[in-house]
Nucleic acid binder design. Structure first.
Lengths: 334, 334
DNA sequence: GAACTCTAGTGAACCGATTCAGGGTCGGGC
DNA sequence: GCCCGACCCTGAATCGGTTCACTAGAGTTC
């Protein structure tokens, strides 16, 4: 185990350990000559800094912990990317964990982060972690919620206005002349679903002759979407909605598949369709899918900014940043 | 910063720091009474172990670094999941990084891992990192390649036999009576694409009257697949293949979309279709897609096992594990 | 030339968990 | 009564990078 330490470097360069450390951290305080000798020594010995020792002395690491519900979900993948980039720009690293919607896993990541004396925690929580995060914060480790607000406003958060998103989608359908709108999504207990429906309802309520029907699904998957689509396709024409707002793009893709199979039905002629999230697949569907886009990368970046802001000034009051979603119109609702 | 240390716990419990450490690591060597007092003290003080100090002393961390080409690719998401689970079972944690096919990013993750004195590195390499990994190994940090072999056999690897996968796909098409096969995928320089084509060709060569046409695409995306599909659909019937093997499922989905739009064509009646990777979307496509499944989770698990094996016995010769892919038949080729 | 300021560099102390040589106690064997 | 082993516990030393009080020497000021 040829672990070269600052002491070895110092000896090899003919300086003291303090000088080596200064070269590494504040080269301006060291004479050019010494900088040179130390750097050559580092090169020759193949020295690599030991982060553990550094962190031990510093009291906290330069790592930011991020726990998302599911890495393979493109939304979170983008959030993670944004966070990573913003963190890197400030010299931090992101430790990424996927809770897979499992409360136990979620807690085990928080345990790990705490043991690692992480600089801060970003989390899109699944279970009830507010208590846990407050404890972290009381020890000097700030936490920022992603895609959810803290219940009592004691933690900062970055989220998207899902109510506005729902409104945006249905307003768009109404503007293109549709009146019999169906909302497909579920379970109703999920906050995102509930908020999108709330916005949808608000938009529909504002227009004369507009009706909003709700088809609840068991989950937000292609299969569930198709099931709902088949149900709709099987109805007599006079009972069918003339537009469908799906709570996410997967559901919309399923709906689209079911509707396209029914040769007598056309999208968007007979039924307009709009999804939510604007995943990559949306634009490449048989009929390119209209959708509501969330600034996912920006969410990640902002979360890191809030976090570093709090880390720099522990007394700072929590802040809630809410982004507005954006309507993306494609063929499925044109 | 109320950082409680073992010393605080020891004082509070009326024992020595050594005993506290023993309670934490080898409770069997401590009297039940002392275990009890220490645990109560830990509880009361809210003590959390400092991993940095632990790692500093131990010389290496209990973390395994994993660099994948792209987290949002379901294949790698599964590999990561498998690795995470296997690692957790041995008390290790996985630090996940996504290189996004950027060689610089890839190296910066390796830098980080080296500074962190990671226990080992798993990587699905993009750039040329063999040199770098050998340096790591010479310092006692083993590395295992994922989804690629090492060029000179000096590193262990876990991969899937893509030649066999290509053969499997085309054999299946041939068995169901097809003879005019088209291979769609690219760029040809990508090893996975080349291997799958190699297998496809081997299968086609073995059967009388069978022909294999190659349509190269610029990338493995839905859009490129659709482009190829439109080209095929536009041909006169006698020039069309009666089966298509797509180099991955995204391409297959694009092909399927283009073929389905052409109302006179039916999948699989006129053209059978098979993809590769068996992503979630494959089974939920309009016509459920046949595909070649790779044991992605198992790859992750195995990679961790190889890694820990090498970490335990540095002299161990490198090992190449090759998994066999599996044919999944669905409606698109039935 | 005494007093002062700068700059560059030194090295012991420190962070906190783990290890290990050493010591105390008790019961059993002879 | 003495010795031995088993058992439990102690606390100083250690890992390696950073910090900080301090020294040395060169340059400035009055």
């Amino acid at each position: 185990m040829s672990t070269t330490s600052v002491r070895d470097v110092a000896r090899h360069a003919g300086v003291s350990v303090g000088t080596v450390s200064n070269v590494l951290n504040r080269p301006d305080r060291v004479s050019p000559d010494a900088v040179d000798r130390v750097q050559r020594a580092i090169e020759e010995l193949g020295y690599v800094r030991n982060d553990a020792a550094r962190q031990l002395r510093a009291g906290r690491s330069t790592t930011i912990g991020l726990v998302v519900l599911d890495v393979s979900n493109p939304f979170f993948a983008e959030v993670a990317r944004g966070a990573q980039e913003e963190a890197a720009a400030h010299g931090f690293t992101v430790l990424l964990g996927s809770s897979d919607e499992d409360a136990e896993r979620e807690l085990s990541y928080l345990d790990l982060f705490e043991k690692q004396r992480v600089h801060g925690v970003l989390i899109s929580p699944n279970g009830d972690v507010d208590e846990r995060l407050r404890r972290l914060r009381s020890r000097g480790t700030p936490a920022v919620l992603v895609d959810r607000r803290s219940e009592d406003g004691s933690l900062s958060s970055v989220a998207v206005d899902d109510v506005a998103g729902g409104r945006l989608a249905v307003e768009h359908l109404l503007e293109s002349g549709r009146r019999r709108i169906a909302f497909v999504g579920g379970p109703a207990g999920v906050r995102q679903v509930a908020d999108r429906l709330l916005g949808a309802r608000a938009a529909a309520d504002g227009v004369d002759g507009a009706g909003l029907e709700v088809l609840e699904t068991a989950s937000l998957t292609v299969l569930e979407g198709r099931r709902a689509g088949e149900e709709i396709a099987a109805r007599p024409a006079e009972d069918r909605p003339d537009a469908v707002f799906a709570a996410n793009d997967l559901v919309a893709v399923g709906l689209l598949q079911a509707l396209v199979m029914q040769r007598s039905l056309r999208v968007p002629r007979d039924i307009a369709l709009i999804g939510y999230d604007d995943i990559d697949f949306a634009s490449t569907a048989v009929v390119p899918l209209s959708s509501i886009r969330q600034p996912s990368r920006l969410i990640g970046e902002t979360a890191v900014q809030l976090l570093l802001g709090e880390a720099g000034d522990p007394g700072k009051p929590p802040q809630d940043v809410v982004f507005q979603p954006e309507l993306v119109v494609r063929a499925s609702s044109a």
